[in-house]
Simulated scan of single mutants.
Amino acid sequence: MESDGFYDSLPRLATFSALTDPASYTPLPDDWVVGCADIVGSTGEIAAGRYKTVNMVGAGVISAQINAAGGRAFPYVFGGDGAAFACAPGHAATAAAALSAVQAWAAAEFGIELRVAQASLARIRAAGRDVAVARYQASPDVDYAMFAGGGLAWLEAQMKSGAFALPPAPPGTRPDLTGLSCRWSHIPARNGTILSLVIEPANRVPGPAFTRLANSVLSIVRSLDRDGHPIPSQGADVSWPAAGVALEARTARQGNSLGRRLSLYAQTLFAWAVLRFNLPVGTFDPRAYKRAVGRNADFRKFDDGLKMTLDCDPDTVQRLRAVLEKAQAAGVIRYGLYEQDEAMMTCIVPSAMQDDHVHFIDGAAGGYALAAAQIKSGPSLRTD
């Protein structure tokens, strides 16, 4: 198999539960590289009420890579306060430059410190870990990468210790974040709570016991409406002015000018009217678009573990907690739960006229970041 064509050759899996099977994953070619990023002090940013900004920066890592890839498909995963991806060797330098550009942008625009790192598969495998991927067909138009093998978790830990850091970009460097937006309203829980769930293998590498646990969790979640999907089938609501417009204005390569902000407010007012009142514009069908947003949403993933954002009733939360506590006591997993009242979306929309737009779902009050923090700090919390 040619290295550059590796990802295109992978089958798309239509059933999420198939992703608990290690046989669903294919190791990346030896000459590929892996990049990752995460925000330093994200818990403090959340406490300051800036989780929408945190999500925007995390999704910005992926947006910059998509635009730098020039239409080439590649595996990536969104983690709330960070992201990871892999690419063929011929694209490694371009990917590294895009990572460093996002780091410079996050510091300049938001005062956020973003760690960024990149390592070869050979180096990861020399440390006894691997990176294997699968493609999950979330909808007819969008698929997402799933990761196994422990390599992403290993690289993130190494990055936090200072290893594999990329050189900083020159001052004033800005990434290409075309398509990155966060215009949708927060999505209220319909069944009691928005549950952010992060489950990690106890030894960082999923094995048979973790597979059994993941299947148990998914079996419980299947009792929820649409597997706990936080977005209603008819799509999310919109409001104006959209809460994320001020953030989106700061993604422009030319900077956050008054003209840019005014233009965005005009664009979002028009979009709000079209979506709010279901007004067809040419071939654009707003009802169909809103349904596609839900179908395309990334609300569950395997990322050297299992992460989900679920619209969940209290009884199901307790059933999940009981299964997870038992598995943690048996030394199979470590886990974190975080409950909040709303979910939120951060989006990458190259064109509203096509259905390949992607939407990253997280809890609106801390989500994955605070669920992961519970793994280190103890019992789960709930926001007011």
Rank of each mutant, 00 (worst) to 15 (best):
G282N: 09
Q267V: 01
T211G: 03
D311V: 05
T268H: 14
G282I: 10
A209C: 00
P188R: 05
L275A: 09
R250K: 11
S196W: 10
W272F: 15
L269D: 02
R295V: 03
G235K: 11
S223G: 14
A209W: 03
A236R: 09
Q254C: 12
N296E: 06
D285V: 12
A202N: 13
Y265A: 08
R204G: 10
V281D: 06
Y289T: 11
D285H: 02
S185M: 07
R276M: 08
L306F: 15
E200T: 02
N203C: 09
R226N: 09
V221Q: 13
A242Y: 03
P201M: 02
G282L: 05
T193P: 02
A202T: 01
R183T: 04
A297P: 00
G235L: 12
S216R: 14
A246V: 01
R276W: 11
A214G: 06
N278A: 14
T268C: 07
L310Y: 07
H186C: 03
R190I: 13
G235M: 14
P230D: 09
K301E: 06
N203T: 05
G259D: 11
S196Q: 12
D298Q: 02
D311Y: 06
R253P: 14
L275K: 04
G235S: 12
I231D: 02
G259R: 15
A273Y: 13
Q254N: 05
L310T: 08
Q254V: 06
P201I: 09
S257A: 12
G305H: 03
V238F: 06
A273W: 12
G294W: 01
V217K: 07
T268A: 06
R222G: 01
A297H: 00
L258V: 10
L195M: 11
Q234K: 10
D225S: 15
W272A: 05
L275R: 01
C312S: 12
Q267P: 05
S257D: 10
L275D: 11
T268D: 14
A236G: 06
I220A: 11
R260T: 15
C312L: 05
A249S: 13
A292T: 15
V217W: 09
A252G: 01
F210S: 11
L197F: 09
R190Y: 05
N203A: 03
I231F: 02
D298L: 04
A271D: 07
P230E: 07
D237Y: 10
K301D: 07
P280E: 07
G244I: 09
E200P: 00
S196M: 06
R295A: 14
R226K: 08
D225Y: 12
S233F: 07
L279Q: 05
L258R: 07
G305K: 02
I231L: 08
V281M: 08
A266K: 09
R212A: 15
T211V: 08
H186T: 15
I220V: 11
L224C: 14
Q267I: 00
W240D: 02
V281K: 03
N278H: 15
R190W: 08
A246I: 08
L258P: 01
A273R: 12
V293T: 04
V245R: 03
S196N: 00
V217N: 07
G282H: 13
L279W: 13
N191I: 02
R183K: 10
G228Y: 04
